[in-house]
């Protein structure tokens, strides 16, 4: 169950269209280290986590990644809004326009459509959490590359915000990993004999 707030987590108000930048930024919508992959990765992995803390962290961060997905979608939309087909074509978006017009579709910067192959849900909480830590670093690196490609403060400010969130998420996943590893390392012992063992005697 979710509750939707009809506003962006961070405001996006891009005054000048820039289809070339849109072609790069869309990779954080539907690319290998993008927000769609992040949200579905965490929201899928949460079911097999062994502690309530780990389930909650994955649930909360997966939810926030959906909020980031709509920020990135909004950025791509504003960067291409009203741009004529010939200008899109000159900026490398001719093939995108042919299939999707001015719509938002989850692809990478190179044009590869989103695929579940970008994510894993392993059933092993240690393996999953290490993947999540790596995913946050890959997303941070991608946002830094996008900031290097951008020259408009209207574009750079939301990118900086999204990048900063990756660092906070890394910290939370690191804490979840400690909690899960400690739990798995605990020796199981019983203060009293449990009911299910008594019945078998």
């Amino acid at each position: 169950m979710w509750i939707y707030d009809k506003k962006l987590e961070y405001p996006v108000k891009i005054k000048n269209c820039n289809p070339k930048m849109a072609k790069y930024i869309i990779t954080q919508y539907g690319g290998p280290d993008g927000e769609l992959a992040a949200s579905l990765r965490y929201l899928s992995q949460r079911f097999s986590m062994p502690t309530e803390e780990a389930r909650s962290i994955l649930n909360d961060i997966g939810t926030e990644e959906l909020a980031h997905l709509e920020i990135v979608g909004t950025m791509v939309h504003q960067l291409t809004k009203g741009v004529p087909a010939d200008v899109l074509e000159k900026n490398g978006l001719g093939a995108y326009y042919a299939d999707h017009d001015h719509a938002i579709y989850p692809i990478s910067a190179a044009g590869n459509p989103w695929t579940a192959e970008y994510i894993q849900s392993k059933g092993d909480p240690i393996a999953d959490l290490y993947e999540d830590l790596a995913a946050e670093q890959k997303a941070r690196a991608t946002y830094e590359n996008l900031i290097n490609l951008a020259d408009d403060p209207d574009v750079i400010e939301p990118l900086k915000f999204l990048r900063a969130r990756e660092i906070v998420h890394f910290q939370r996943f690191g804490e979840a990993l400690r909690i899960v590893e400690d739990k798995l390392a605990q020796k199981k012992f019983f203060i009293t004999k449990p009911e299910f063992l008594k019945k078998r005697e």
């Binding site: 961070y10 915000f161 900063a164 969130r165 906070v168 910290q171």
Partner: peptide, 16 residues
């Protein structure tokens, strides 16, 4: 916190 992307100074590690 909204401007920096975090409310925690120890996690505020700006790019560049």
């Amino acid at each position: 916190g909204l401007e920096r992307g975090t409310i925690f100074p120890e996690l505020d590690r700006p790019f560049g």
